[in-house]
């Protein structure tokens, strides 16, 4: 089984970090993974996207893809760019916050999540990406939650492990959004 995912949004929404936690969770789950960012000035406030591939079929070939099994699109620009590139039968998850033109396709499953709204109730707006990740894994069980827990411990430096709990809480909140 191989899952090809694009996560796209504004720089600063934590898109690259979310992809990294997902990739690390895949690694902890014993999968082969690639994490391929758009890099450069995009990271300074423009749009950012990251392709994450998780596979239990051995080494992953291209880190660059035409189409995706799952697209997680967190602003209008990303929706406009990537809606057409979801595989037929695939999944599109989008945050309605700030989106004026929702996805139109009918040959894919579209999930609208209110992750930004949910963030307003959280102690830190920086946990937005963990809410989105929770929603993603609530919709599609690509990796178990326990692997995300382990990934957080790897990705968050030990000197910041006081932040583990708030991230876990946000992740659970994301799962509840779609639960």
């Amino acid at each position: 089984m191989k899952t090809e995912i694009i996560i796209a949004g504004f720089g600063g929404q934590g898109v690259l970090s979310m992809g990294k936690i997902l990739a690390y969770a895949g690694l902890m789950h014993g999968l082969d993974v690639t994490w391929m960012p758009s890099y450069g000035p995009e990271q300074r406030g423009g749009t950012a996207n990251v392709t994450v591939i998780l596979s239990d079929e051995g080494p992953i070939s291209s880190p660059v893809l035409d189409t995706f099994d799952i697209a997680v699109l967190l602003n209008q620009q990303s929706l406009d760019k990537f809606e057409s590139r979801v595989k037929p039968g695939g999944i599109l998850i989008y945050d309605s916050y700030g989106v004026h033109t929702p996805p139109q396709r009918t040959d894919i499953t579209v999930y609208r999540i209110e992750a930004m709204e949910a963030t307003f109730d959280m102690p830190s707006s920086k946990t937005y990406n963990m809410i989105v990740l929770g929603a993603l894994l609530g919709i599609e069980h690509i990796v178990p939650s326990e692997s995300v827990d382990l990934a957080l411990e790897k990705v968050i430096p030990s000197r910041h492990h006081d932040l583990l709990e708030v991230n876990r809480t946000a992740f659970r909140r994301g799962m509840e959004l779609v639960g």
Partner: peptide, 21 residues
């Protein structure tokens, strides 16, 4: 974001480890 694996490598702890980087 830095890696916990980086700290481990500096300490020279595990001889072979699987990491994401």
């Amino acid at each position: 974001m830095s890696h916990s694996s980086a700290d481990e490598a500096a300490k020279g702890a595990p001889q072979q480890e699987v990491v994401l980087m």
